[in-house]
Nucleic acid binder design. Structure first.
Ligand SMILES: [Zn+2]
Ligand SMILES: [Zn+2]
Ligand SMILES: [Zn+2]
Ligand SMILES: [Zn+2]
Lengths: 154, 154
DNA sequence: ACTCTAACTGATACTTAGTCTCATGTCAGA
DNA sequence: TCTGACATGAGACTAAGTATCAGTTAGAGT
């Protein structure tokens, strides 16, 4: 069973209708590159209305089919996702993204909980850097896929 | 020397002009509550143009006078800041914010660096939860200062 | 004090991201 | 196949921010 069929099935099971527009949006983002904007989807899903694309993205997000990625310039991209909670490592230089799930964010949270009087319920974390292949062909000038002024650089 | 005088002096030293508009924006945000939007500033700085407020906020941000806070609903707020890199603990229930600087994010970064082949250059982290006083008067219904659907809840 | 100019300004038009409304269309269960 | 709740597209609208530009001004140099 293809990715698309799986998702469609999942939609059905959750009581959502499987409509033409939703199928076109799905096809669009399954064919899209590793991360993309709502606008990318709009252009790849001909005939589907703007509002519908936004609505569908939100639906898929709630279903963990896609996740949102906060780019360093503050814009939001989307990415196919299977797992629930996880974080991203973004290469500033080539735009590549890797997920990390098993990393010890929970240790940080635990530490914070005991240091402060807050009860921690959630968090948002994105990490920016330079991937292996970009390090390899290093001293080259960075391209523009992940520009940043919004970065909380640490 | 007052906060304002200090900042004004700092502006001057960095070669920025100290104009009426900038003074009005400064007064506005020094009088504002613990965190506020650009729009709040606009309303508290009568006569200052929209674009100028945005420009001034960016300037003050570059000077570490203010920092940006990513609310759980995705909107951006500002907050007076003195230190450079730090993170925020936001109470979802009363809107209170605490900074944390000394927390071991660097351990996480180090771990990530060795687990992945990324060279980590920056990150963005916000933490959401419930502050001590909100926990004290617990079972009460949450108010609406920090609503969230955008949360990356972990 | 006077001049000069780069820095700054407000108005306004524009862009981008997303929401709302509403009349029309359609999926899927009976 | 009927039917109505769900979904849709068009387009108006909001919110957040940027670009342009003609006019103003801070403040350095004299
Ligand atoms: Zn790379
Ligand atoms: Zn940090
Ligand atoms: Zn609280
Ligand atoms: Zn996490």
């Amino acid at each position: 069973m293809s990715d698309r069929e799986l998702i469609v099935k999942h939609l059905g099971l959750r009581g959502h209708r499987v409509t033409g527009s939703r199928r076109r949006v799905l096809d669009a983002l399954l064919a899209a590159p590793a991360h993309f904007t709502v606008d990318d989807v709009l252009q790849r899903a001909p005939g589907v209305g703007r509002a519908t694309v936004f609505r569908t993205m939100k639906l898929l997000q709630d279903m963990n089919v896609v996740c949102r990625v906060l780019m360093e310039d503050g814009s939001l991209h989307y990415r196919l996702s299977t797992t629930g909670h996880h974080h991203h490592l973004l290469c500033r230089h080539c735009g590549r993204i890797e997920d990390f799930v098993n990393c010890d964010v929970s240790a940080l949270v635990t530490e914070l909980s005991s240091n402060t009087e807050f009860e921690i319920e959630g968090h948002w974390l994105e990490v920016y850097g330079r991937c292996q292949s970009c390090r390899a062909r290093s001293a080259g000038p960075a391209d523009k896929r992940a520009i940043g002024s919004a970065a909380d650089v640490g």
